[in-house]
Simulated assay, not measured.
Amino acid sequence: MTYSDAAQRRGKRERLATAAAQVLHEQGMEKTTIADIARAADVPVGNVYYYFKTKDQLVEAAIDAHAHTLADMISTLDALPTPQDRLKALLAGWVEQRELTARYGCPTGSLASELDKRDDGLDRTLAKVMRVLLDWAEQQFLAMGRAADARELAVALIASYQGISLLTNTFRDPDLMASEARRLSHWIDSLT
């Protein structure tokens, strides 16, 4: 296999993983078929089985895509000068996605809720991804000098996001996300 063959294979696999994350978010686990994912990735359905033998393997790839997206986001946020700036930029990113959240909910939270109903361990795999964000938020509060309650503050921040994502989706009201982000921004300011 040549380098370009390997790159092309990796390209299709990554497209399928990204498409799986998108389609699972938009349609949910039960409604999503391998054919739906293949169509979204612009890959012939027969080729999917070369990369992924089962729908569960595609779900694992979607979880991996969530992990990569989160890692990229954290890398971008970490370039900001202060922990307050980083936390507020996280909020701004959530607000940018408010229309999508209003239609489908939080991509990771919705998938976590669906995987929790299964007994295959994929829920724990996704929990590791969510823990990365929680740990990162805790580090920001530690950097703000909140050693005594950094973990609790991180949990409160992530729980607020998950809660407002659910409400934004339930009421199909993206303005809820924006107003909660403003409240959380003031809350972050009040902690210093």
Rank of each mutant, 00 (worst) to 15 (best):
I74L: 15
T33C: 08
A35P: 01
V48Q: 06
A65F: 09
K31W: 06
A112S: 14
S113E: 12
L111Y: 04
G145E: 11
E152K: 09
D64F: 09
T108R: 07
D64W: 11
Y161F: 13
L126F: 02
A92R: 08
I74F: 10
G105Q: 00
A71P: 00
L91H: 01
R124K: 14
I74A: 08
L24V: 01
R103K: 14
D85N: 13
L133F: 07
L100T: 04
V45W: 03
V155I: 13
F52H: 12
R98T: 01
F141D: 02
L142R: 15
Y161K: 11
L87Q: 02
Y104D: 07
N47I: 00
L58D: 05
A154F: 09
K53N: 08
D119H: 14
K31L: 14
D119I: 10
L134D: 14
A89E: 11
A112Q: 13
D36M: 07
L157A: 06
E30P: 00
G105T: 03
A92S: 10
M144S: 11
G145V: 08
I158P: 00
L157D: 01
L24C: 13
A89R: 09
W94E: 10
M29F: 15
R131S: 13
Q140A: 04
K128P: 00
E114W: 07
E30K: 13
D135I: 05
D120H: 07
R146C: 09
W94Y: 10
L153R: 08
D64N: 10
G28Y: 05
T125Y: 04
L134M: 12
E96W: 06
E96T: 07
V59C: 05
I74R: 14
M144P: 04
I37M: 09
R86F: 02
R131P: 01
D120N: 14
E30H: 12
A156H: 14
A92M: 04
G145D: 10
A62H: 01
T101D: 07
E60N: 07
L87D: 02
V155A: 12
A35D: 13
A154E: 08
I158W: 05
K31G: 11
G145Q: 07
E99M: 06
A35N: 11
D149E: 15
A159F: 09
D85W: 05
G105M: 01
D123S: 14
D42H: 13
A61D: 10
L157N: 00
E138T: 02
A38F: 07
Q140K: 04
E138G: 01
T69K: 12
E60S: 13
I37Y: 03
G105L: 02
